[in-house]
Simulated assay, not measured.
Amino acid sequence: MDTITHTLFGLSLYGSVDKEKMDRRTKMAYLFTTVGASQIPDIDVISQTWDTEGLYQMWHRGVTHSIFLTPLWALLFYLLCLVFFKVKDRRLFFLGWLAAVIHVTSDLFNAWGTGYLEPFSQMRITFGTIPIIDFVFWVIIGSAYFISKKKPIANRPFYFRAAWLIIALHIALQSLQGYYFYQKYTHDYEQVALSAGFIPTTFQVITKQEGTVTIYEDGIFQSKQTLYSLESQEDADLDYLFSKNPAAKTLQQWSPFVVIVEDDQQIGVYDPRFYRNGQSFLFESIEH
């Protein structure tokens, strides 16, 4: 998910906590923990500053997004609260753990995916059933905020907890639809990947059969539509490409499958899940 959504997740966790009997310093510790732990897995973005081998595509959302690292993130914020706020409350550890788990788990559902099981598995897990920016989340959390502001302080956590239930229901419904479309296309193509549209219930279904990649738009309330048909040059010399541009090899490892481009000017690979208006923003190449 995007940074704004992760921040909203942290704020809605904070909103779901009963703070009626808390002092100001304890409230600050809770806010710091929920928002901070909701953001901390994305600290891996700094790795691009020292990446000289084209590995950033695997590092980003890699080990920092591992489910096995989440209790360490929680411990970090628990200790920071002791140091900066002088607050010792074991609930902060569990709240920080929950915030980190929500971050790394929610990222599984969009097309970018995560290294959820690192370091025990390098597999990139992605479901593609929720867009990277899902405005439905924003509306749900925003509604909980505005409704709760009109209620007594003691009743406000109820509305944020209800928002979390609605968010879970939204993810479940989207994922069931995604599973249906994935199975629908799997029977006819060698490889299939999903990328959820910004409008709920709509999906881009990316398929590959031999050297042809076809991108469809499909949904519960719309008919199937062919968006793009792309030819992949499967006979291209990728070893040469990888030797000159290691990031291309990383991209091939990271993506479910790639489109290979080779012409008189260049040779390269790109991820078709991010193909829009004649190009993919995940494209690595070299000039001939």
Rank of each mutant, 00 (worst) to 15 (best):
1 M>K: 07
8 L>E: 02
8 L>T: 02
9 F>V: 06
10 G>L: 03
14 Y>I: 01
15 G>E: 00
18 D>I: 04
19 K>F: 03
19 K>A: 08
21 K>M: 04
22 M>Q: 04
22 M>L: 14
25 R>C: 03
27 K>S: 09
32 F>Q: 10
32 F>V: 05
40 I>T: 08
42 D>V: 11
44 D>N: 12
44 D>H: 03
47 S>V: 11
49 T>F: 15
62 G>M: 01
78 Y>A: 12
80 L>W: 13
81 C>R: 00
84 F>K: 05
84 F>H: 09
87 V>E: 14
87 V>I: 14
89 D>W: 00
90 R>V: 13
92 L>W: 01
94 F>V: 11
94 F>R: 03
97 W>I: 02
100 A>R: 02
102 I>V: 15
106 S>G: 04
107 D>N: 06
108 L>G: 07
108 L>S: 06
109 F>H: 08
110 N>D: 11
114 T>Q: 04
114 T>S: 12
116 Y>N: 03
117 L>V: 10
120 F>T: 07
122 Q>Y: 06
123 M>Q: 09
124 R>N: 11
126 T>W: 01
127 F>S: 05
128 G>V: 06
129 T>R: 02
130 I>C: 02
130 I>D: 10
135 F>Q: 07
137 F>L: 12
138 W>I: 14
140 I>M: 14
143 S>V: 15
144 A>V: 13
147 I>S: 10
147 I>D: 01
147 I>H: 00
151 K>F: 00
158 F>M: 15
159 Y>K: 06
159 Y>Q: 09
161 R>G: 01
165 L>N: 05
166 I>S: 09
167 I>S: 02
168 A>S: 14
168 A>I: 13
171 I>V: 15
171 I>E: 01
172 A>D: 04
175 S>V: 05
182 Y>E: 12
182 Y>L: 10
185 Y>F: 15
186 T>Q: 15
186 T>R: 15
186 T>C: 05
187 H>G: 05
189 Y>V: 08
190 E>H: 14
190 E>N: 13
192 V>N: 02
193 A>M: 02
197 G>L: 04
197 G>V: 00
206 I>T: 11
218 D>H: 13
228 Y>M: 13
231 E>F: 14
233 Q>V: 14
236 A>Y: 04
240 Y>D: 13
246 P>W: 00
247 A>I: 05
249 K>S: 15
251 L>T: 02
251 L>F: 08
252 Q>W: 00
254 W>L: 14
256 P>D: 09
257 F>C: 11
260 I>F: 00
261 V>F: 06
263 D>P: 03
264 D>W: 01
265 Q>I: 03
265 Q>T: 09
266 Q>C: 05
267 I>T: 12
267 I>R: 08
273 R>V: 12
275 Y>T: 07
275 Y>S: 08
275 Y>A: 08
276 R>S: 10
277 N>I: 04
280 S>D: 11
285 S>W: 14
286 I>H: 04
287 E>S: 12
